[in-house]
Design a protein around this nucleic acid. Sequence first.
DNA 1: CGGGACTTTGACACCTCTCAACTCTCGTGG
DNA 2: CCACGAGAGTTGAGAGGTGTCAAAGTCCCG
Lengths: 223, 223
Amino acid sequence: MYVTAPGEFPVPVSLRSRKTKHDENFKVHDLKQDQHLFREGDDAKHIYEIVSGVLRLTRVLENGRRQVIAFGFPGDFVGFPCCGLHHTECDAITPARVVYHRREALEDGAVNPELHAVLLQAALREIRAMQDHFMMLGCKSAREKTASFLSVLAQRTGTKLGAYTEIKLPMSRSDIADFLGLTTETVCRTISQLRSAKVIALEDPHVIVVLKPEALLALAESD
Amino acid sequence: MYVTAPGEFPVPVSLRSRKTKHDENFKVHDLKQDQHLFREGDDAKHIYEIVSGVLRLTRVLENGRRQVIAFGFPGDFVGFPCCGLHHTECDAITPARVVYHRREALEDGAVNPELHAVLLQAALREIRAMQDHFMMLGCKSAREKTASFLSVLAQRTGTKLGAYTEIKLPMSRSDIADFLGLTTETVCRTISQLRSAKVIALEDPHVIVVLKPEALLALAESD
DNA sequence: CGGGACTTTGACACCTCTCAACTCTCGTGG
DNA sequence: CCACGAGAGTTGAGAGGTGTCAAAGTCCCG
């Protein structure tokens, strides 16, 4: 998941079973919290489709600085290989279930044409979503980034509570910070500001209620 | 082109003609400077392979802020579609020549298997390169960004002058700034600092000589 | 020769980072 | 049962990097 334009979220595997029925190597795997799915430099044997739970894709520089490339939510695909290798770390920040798809299904259209098409479209959506995320990292202020992040999360994973929307944040403040190109302190402060402005409320640090969705969206794109 | 790890640059079409000989829709097109190749929202009929010249991929937010997604150099592919549409602007910052590849060649493996594989690998490299660029935008300071940018450009397009390397910068300062998530003024100042430190020299604003490549690389990754 | 776009430099403001302290929760062990 | 420590989150003070605004310089081209 990137902070991307709304309205084009992927369809979980469960909703398009017809498309995957021909995958003879269809295989489900469960991950415990904090368990790794793959690491940077690993041979890429599979592409993974997330059924449930939340994954985290990260890269680290030599000097230790870390970037969270993306969060993987149900319906997302992770692990697109380059030159046969994974180039990010991937681990589960909640218990999670993924479907394995053989890399050959992506790279060779003859193996399983239907699955091939699904994986290819997922890769193209990935490119599009990463372009969206460039706008975040390159153009936006801390407040805009944080508001965008919460706004997208509300639309993608929020649960309605009457006029409000409740967001469960499975990731830590420092995950959010490394995703948005900020520090944990700045993320905390910005969330506190949004709370002071009555745009959101905090049930606890990992459960946020969006009180004014339209105000949140406005802050996400304000000049 | 993103500011990416060195040593894995694409191979220009001219060097792998065998791989494209089966593309029955192989078509060359020339672009004048400042001419558009496609715009955001256009129907994506083709993917483009750059033969010569330099292209610029951009996105703009509602409030006018701009992000340069990538620069396209010879050997790069641009125009990967999502949902059949282009999601960036693309124009030529120098006179350029591109090869058209029909979108179907990417999306349907049966049309031309060899070309399909080439385009697919290009898309996967694109994902990898964008991940690299996230590190730039999210983790690095202005000096590190600028040094990285010049360093990569030197390796990718530089011409050797004895111990030195000359870089031609076809893009404006504001293009560089929008690519790196900075302002033109900051890019200028940072380049001036590098010049003061005798790491680079400026023949003119668009021709830079790298005097100390190892120092430039060190600045690109310094803590 | 003059106008315009681009580049460079300076002064200043302010946003974000850094460093630090405090709180809170939770799990461990005495 | 309580003490203790570890880790995450929050908040504050201060510094510094980068953005903003302004002006001058450079170059190209009409």
